[in-house]
Design a protein around this nucleic acid. Structure first.
Lengths: 214, 214
DNA sequence: TAGTATTTGTGATAAATAGCACAAGATTTT
DNA sequence: AAAATCTTGTGCTATTTATCACAAATACTA
């Protein structure tokens, strides 16, 4: 009995990349792919690819490679991509709009069902086909639609308030784009996407490489 | 002589977070902060805070804490945040617009000077105060403005082409939001921001936690 | 002043992650 | 059918990162 021990975080973050390249390989009619090939496409060493995939079971065949359809199906199942996941976006500014219209999400089973904002000029309008509601209606709307996921796209100052409201509305998974640290109960999954912080690290490298070149 | 060995990646990614909270502490008139306090704000263990900051020198004072202004200044310098960094955004869709108007960037010294797109209906318009040019004018415009950084906000299929053009235009730092693996010469710094992949890992946790709850 | 409470910086240890290298399975070639 | 070539899965090792725990420095208290 292979006790399915917790999968390493870095492995988990690479799985979607494998999945994407497998889908492309399938589109091109490939039925088999080696860890070497997949690794080259994804920019990841072959040994790493094999070790990552080995967490999902013995998917490959020595001397042959991996069956693209089989591995894609396992990944799809493992990552839960076929389940439709409803989400709301709070904050209908530029970022909120971009997220609401991001085409990559639907392919991964994420459906943004509504946006929320406090700006009266935005309420009632539609963005990417989704209606914008007043923030105070969050519990009502999100509760009725049984939304589990909330995307925070408001300024840092308002983020904690919004998150508290999300939790009241029954949301258990929060994807935070506001550049701040949020307090949530341990039962809530919080993932932070901090673009400004990311930029700052890039700035570090830019400064260094500028120093190297004349 | 303390040979400044390469700073660990994870440490580097936490520094901007410290910086942000230090700025807030300064705004509130705090002149000293302990690793304990800073850690609580940032959601990072105090020992980690101390070890991270120790890479920048002996900034604190035992029994006292860290001088907020001093550490903020060191971080600002170390991360190169005071240098103005010019950047272009290629792709004037929702994401490109969101990035062009993202308020967090200017505070970190990033100035988006122009956008590029192939859609004639977008060319010549202004987005967040910045003009949209035809993609073929990239080398011309970016070269003249001495832009070093390019932000890729086009669909995956077009990303490699765009990146090649960026490199021709003299760009050496590329921040890629397209969900694909890009080929660049080793002299170019490439940072990937893969929202769809991020979503897929969140999907994994959503599926798992759904199974736990009735 | 002596004692207590804080707090840093870091050596040492632990944990997590990556990379190597090879036995064993599969296919192709001669 | 034997040899050569691929390719996987994984035990082992190396590297990276996080955590612990404590000496040394400072501040506060009585």
């Amino acid at each position: 009995m292979t006790r399915a021990t917790e999968i390493p975080r870095p492995t988990l973050s690479r799985l979607p990349i494998y999945y994407r390249w497998l889908m492309r390989a399938i589109d091109e009619g490939e039925s088999v792919i080696s860890s070497q090939q997949l690794g080259e496409l994804a920019g990841i060493p072959a040994a790493q690819v094999r070790k990552d995939l080995s967490h999902l079971g013995e998917l490959g065949q020595a001397g042959v490679g991996y069956d693209t359809h089989k591995v894609a199906a396992v990944l799809c199942d493992f990552l839960g991509l076929m389940h439709e996941k409803q989400a709301i976006v709070v904050g209908a500014g530029n970022l909120g709009r971009a997220l609401a219209g991001y085409p990559g999400f639907e392919r991964y089973g994420l459906k943004i069902v509504a946006l929320f904002d406090n700006d009266p000029s935005k309420i009632g309008r539609k963005i990417a086909g989704k209606e914008v509601f007043a923030v105070k209606r969050m519990a009502d709307v999100a509760g009725r639609l049984e939304v589990r996921m909330g995307i925070v796209a408001v300024p840092a100052e308002q983020a904690q308030t919004v998150v508290d409201q999300m939790i009241d509305a029954g949301i258990t998974v929060i994807w935070n784009f506001a550049p701040t640290h949020l307090q949530v109960p341990s039962s809530v999954l919080l993932e932070n996407e901090d673009l400004a912080a990311r930029l700052a690290t890039i700035s570090y490298y830019m400064t260094r490489s500028a120093a190297r070149e004349p």
